[in-house]
């Protein structure tokens, strides 16, 4: 499973809080230049895993590797992080705050101020740059928070629920910025409960439950692995049960004239079309992709 070329690798991360096993040997990797969605039910260990990647927390076992070697302090200084609990100095001015954070990440004074200016403009906060953070609207505070994760041009971005609490415009700005960073070759990992959004934005997804990895990889591969291909068709004037008689075909869902069927082993799409036309009038036939939501449900609750 492990891709030896992946810049970020989480390998067997284990973390226990008292009796609670927060992470139980979590392993996955994030490719360069990919937007990687990190999904799982509440309490699956997403935040714990991200904190360990950033070194805010130590793992009981396992390691985080950056470009093939265990991530150290110097590597982590070049990571960008947005914690689930947003945090800024409420009484510090926006520009000053971003410049300060850039300096903590190792920038010199001049380049820190230059970067702060650039991100303030990029995030549409040019007019708010000299205001203190607490005077900003929540949406604008979120933008500053994103700026805090990006101001030092990180080589890896780790964002915990970055889309929560954003209005649709904010979502667009953030999605655009993340896609742009990914195009620039930066691996971007973010967690989210908004699965449609993850599906729309991400190239890769990892699904965790109970501190373990359930599935990981490019979405297309996850879909293929989830089960046989699906077809949605509408056949008017057909009698019940025609589809089930076709070899290898299983009816998943039926609503009036509309059917959702699985093409199992030995199933032939042409045979399905022939059977449909024999049974009635075929009005619609399309390929149905499994949504991430479905993959997620199947993966997390296999029973």
């Amino acid at each position: 499973m492990r891709d030896s070329h992946a810049p970020l690798e989480l390998d067997g991360l284990t973390k226990r809080y008292g009796d609670v096993m927060a992470l139980d040997g979590l392993t996955f990797s994030v490719s360069a230049g990919s937007l990687h969605g990190f999904v799982g039910p509440n309490g699956a260990g997403k935040t714990t895993a991200m904190r360990i990647v950033l070194g805010v927390l130590g793992a009981d076992a396992g390691e985080v590797r950056w470009r093939g070697a265990p991530a150290d302090e110097n590597d982590r200084r070049r990571f960008g992080y947005m914690p689930e609990e947003r945090g800024l100095y409420p009484k510090m001015r926006v520009r000053e705050q971003l410049a300060y954070l850039a300096r903590l990440h190792g920038r010199d004074s001049a380049s820190a101020h230059e970067a702060a200016d650039r991100w303030v403009r990029r995030l549409g906060l040019a007019e708010r740059g000299d205001e203190v953070v607490e005077s900003l609207s929540l949406g604008n505070q979120q933008r500053v928070q994103l700026g805090a994760a990006l101001v030092h041009d990180p080589e890896l971005l780790v964002l915990d629920e970055p889309f929560s609490g954003l209005d649709p415009m904010g979502v667009d700005v953030l999605a655009e910025v993340l896609a742009e960073r990914a195009r620039a070759g930066v691996p971007v990992v973010f967690s989210s409960h908004q699965l449609e959004l993850v599906e729309r934005l991400c190239d890769e997804v990892s699904i965790v439950a109970g501190g373990r990895l359930v599935a990981t990889g490019p979405l297309s591969r996850l879909r293929a692995a989830a089960g046989p291909p699906l077809r949605r068709l509408r056949v008017e004037g057909a009698a019940d049960g025609w589809a089930g008689a076709v070899a290898g075909v299983r009816v998943v869902e039926r609503r009036g004239d509309e059917l959702l069927v699985e093409l199992g082993d030995g199933a032939d799409e042409d045979a399905l079309v022939d059977a449909a036309r024999a049974a009635g009038s075929l009005r619609h036939l399309s390929e149905e992709r499994r949504t991430l939501t479905e993959l997620f449900r199947d993966a997390v609750a296999p029973a």
């Binding site: 805010v56 200084r77 992080y81 914690p83 609990e85 947003r86 945090g87 805090a148």
Partner: peptide, 13 residues
């Protein structure tokens, strides 16, 4: 309380 501490400790010790 401002939660900035987690942002800071992701960078410095």
């Amino acid at each position: 309380t401002s939660r900035i501490v987690e942002v800071l400790l992701a960078t410095i010790r």
